[in-house]
Design a protein around this nucleic acid. Structure first.
Length: 477
DNA sequence: ATGTAC
């Protein structure tokens, strides 16, 4: 491919114009600093973004967030909207970890109280929350129970004593997609899910205990139940083997059906009107409900550990929000002055609806809902809130994390295990991992600097910071 | 990300 004609179109905004000679059906927009856009140009992810513009039925530009990097077909850190009526859904635009996302719990103790029991609490979390590749959970559900989880989402978890009724309003989509179709999930996927509910997984998935280190907007911070030096717990995980199997199953089915003309076979899709379109959406929503429930159960374990260690009431530990960053969703957006139904694919990108959107939980209709952005291991995380402007610019989306800069393989080759461990120790972060290699693979040096990502997002006017969170301890697969 | 390979 000849060099892509990137041009600056605004502060922290770059564009690639539609070029029919390249087969593009729309342009592309990249929200990033000069430095981050150069990183994206060199790793091949912008080329992936341009491939997405070649798909039929795309509406508006293909969008890249500053944390963009290479993914399966679609880049991670990308947003692409398609017409609902004559558009498509693509499993690669959702990702293998369906409804991967982040939950944040506010715990009403201060840093100094936590410090006295830090090691004991982190060790207890590591002991109670199964972590690592292929790990089984303690629940071991029947097929019938798993079907309820996939249909009812966190409502099932709460009814079974592992959550608080108030959590529903603080979970994206109220913790349940209504068109989940259990019958569209294969027996192989179901079998993996039965053993894995309530498990963390591996790679970049984690539970982190943090303190609120800086408050940028005290009014919204207090509405979100966050104040300086108060303790938070952040969970990053998704739909585990179940979602992975759903993605594998449908990508395979779509490739076998083989009717699409594709710029890259990893972009394989189903058009609205085809059987696999409805089947995939039903299965994706079932996996999404599993992922919401998985995070809710891990939050329950965290609440139990803290209730015991600090003599707290379960209900005093409030979920700030539980957000999704790997989904395709049917939403209404204004397109050229007309309300239009779209399927918005966000892969490694979060929804960040500003105040006023009906989808937001009741509190968040006033404030906009929280955008949870974890930094790399050992660096700060951020809570942001969507700005009105992002409805026009990004279909109401924001970034999802720091974004990798070097591959897992390269991290193992170039980073030194003991040096990374020492650096985390010096920063005052207590780390427990199920495997050793994850320390290098997920080292801060494998990722972009979160501050650069946040500066880009704020500079482009998509979202603004509410608080930063600094890590005190972390458990990982 | 993932019972890290069909």
């Amino acid at each position: 491919m000849s060099e892509l004609p990137l041009r600056k179109v605004g502060d922290f905004i770059f564009g690639i114009d539609r070029d029919v000679n390249r087969g593009m059906n729309s342009g592309a927009l990249i929200f990033a600093s000069e430095d981050l856009v150069q990183k994206a140009m060199s790793d091949g992810s912008i080329e992936q973004l341009v491939n997405v513009t070649k798909l039929p039925g795309i509406v508006g530009p293909a969008i890249a967030m500053p944390d963009i990097h290479l993914g399966y077909g679609f880049p991670i850190g990308g947003v692409a909207a398609f017409s609902y009526d004559d558009g498509l859904v693509s499993p690669g635009g959702v990702g293998y970890d369906i409804n991967c996302g982040v939950s944040l719990l506010s715990i009403p103790i201060t840093q100094s109280t936590f410090a006295s029991k830090r090691k004991e609490v982190i060790d207890a979390l590591f002991q109670r929350i199964p972590s690592g590749v292929g790990t089984k959970g303690k629940l071991d559900l029947s097929r019938q129970q798993l079907a309820s989880v996939m249909t009812e989402g966190i409502n099932w978890v709460i009814e079974n004593g592992m959550g608080d009724a108030m959590d529903v309003d603080h979970t994206d989509e109220l913790g349940k997609f209504g068109e989940a179709e259990v019958s569209k999930v294969s027996p192989a996927a179901t079998g993996r899910g039965m053993k894995q509910l309530g498990t963390l997984g591996a790679g970049n998935h984690f539970v982190e205990i943090q303190r609120v280190s800086r408050v940028f907007d005290s009014k919204i911070a207090s509405a979100f139940n966050l104040s300086e030096n108060n303790i938070t717990a952040m969970v990053h995980t998704g739909s585990r083997g179940l979602g992975h199997q759903v993605a594998t199953d449908y990508i395979e089915k779509l490739l076998r059906s083989g009717s699409n003309q594709l710029p890259d076979r990893q972009l394989v899709f189903a058009r609205n009107g085809e059987r696999l379109f409805d089947d995939y959406i039903g299965a994706m929503q079932a996996a999404a409900n599993f992922a919401f429930s998985n995070r809710e159960i891990i939050i329950d374990q965290i609440r139990r550990v803290f209730a015991k260690a600090f003599n707290l009431e379960y209900e005093d530990m409030r979920i700030v929000y539980s957000i999704s960053h790997n989904l395709a969703r049917v939403e209404e957006h204004e397109v050229e002055g007309k309300k239009t139904r779209l399927i918005v694919h966000r892969k490694g990108a979060t929804r960040a609806f500003p105040p006023g959107r009906k989808e937001n939980g009741s509190l968040f209709k006033l404030t906009g809902h929280p955008v949870l952005v974890p930094g790399s291991m050992g660096s700060d995380s951020y809570v942001l809130v969507g700005e009105k402007k992002n409805m026009e610019l990004t279909f109401g989306s924001s970034c999802h994390g720091a974004g990798r800069v070097i591959s897992r393989h390269k991290a193992m080759e170039t980073l030194n295990l003991s040096r990374v461990s020492e650096e985390l120790n010096e920063k005052g972060v207590y780390l427990k991992t199920a495997s050793r290699k994850v320390i290098q693979e997920e080292a801060p040096g494998s990722y972009k600097q979160i501050e650069q990502v946040i500066r880009s997002i704020e500079g482009a006017g998509i979202s603004r910071s509410v608080v930063s969170l600094s890590p005190l301890g972390v458990i990982k697969g």
